[in-house]
């Protein structure tokens, strides 16, 4: 399961492909949703989640950002197919899978989705028996890194030296025990001082000895 918030992306409204002119009504059974990433520098997609609504087959194509060295104008940017005709409904004419929740993860992608500029979802529904088909709650997530078990701090696992009292006193050094207790007291005092502070204010306006002129003008 991916953690965190979904990626901030732009989902365009689904476009229904039609064949011929608009007067002849012919439902192609194919819709396209484009996803762009306007505010992300290097979008990386690890998971796509949605709730199906009578989509039988899903194909995902991606366009990648061209790396800067061969970024010539008019450079041929190809679409890559990331997921090819994935069956969301085993049978397009029956209900099975028609309203299921799906999560497509890295395992199902044929390529890594890094530096993506556009993601195109092609929805297909060959069966004309359903009135409409679309995806609900479409959300994209960053790849989920399995949280490494937080490493134990070194001092917990450290058993290089023994606990014998003799080892605690280094040659030519003051007693470590004494130093330690003094330093702990110092620490405690500093905590005491910082604990007392609350929002006592003198109502000063200056910052580092200077006045902010805008602040003054309103008072």
């Amino acid at each position: 399961m991916a953690e965190g918030r979904p990626l901030n992306c732009n989902l365009k409204t689904p476009v229904l492909l039609s064949v011929g002119n608009q007067k002849t009504e012919f439902v192609s059974g194919c819709k396209i949703i484009d996803v762009t990433f306007p505010n992300i520098i290097a979008p990386e997609i690890g998971e796509i989640r949605f709730k199906n609504y009578y989509v039988a087959l899903l194909t995902i194509k991606v366009k990648f950002r061209v790396s800067s060295e061969n970024n010539e104008p008019g450079a041929d940017v190809k679409w890559k197919t990331c997921v090819r005709k994935m069956k969301l409904m085993p049978n397009a004419y029956t209900e099975t899978g028609s309203q299921d929740f799906f999560s497509i993860t890295k395992k199902q992608f044929s390529c890594d989705l890094i530096n993506v500029t556009v993601l195109r979802l092609i929805l297909q529904q060959p069966a004309p028996v359903w009135k409409d088909f679309h995806l609900e709650n479409l959300k994209l997530f960053h790849p989920f890194e399995p949280s490494r078990p937080t490493a134990l701090p070194a001092w917990l696992t450290d058993n290089t030296h023994t606990n014998t009292a003799s080892s605690k006193n280094l040659e030519g050094m003051p007693s470590v025990e004494k130093l330690s207790s003094l330093m702990q007291e110092l620490w405690a005092l500093s905590e005491e001082a910082s604990a007392l502070q609350s929002s006592k204010s003198m109502g000063r306006y200056e910052v580092d000895g200077c006045y902010e002129i805008n602040l003054l003008s309103y008072t």
Binding site: W155, H161, S167, K168, V176, E177, L179, S180, Q184
Partner: peptide, 10 residues
């Protein structure tokens, strides 16, 4: 820990 005898010793 770092102020304790053990840590300080290290």
């Amino acid at each position: 820990y770092s102020l304790g005898p053990e840590g300080l010793h290290t």
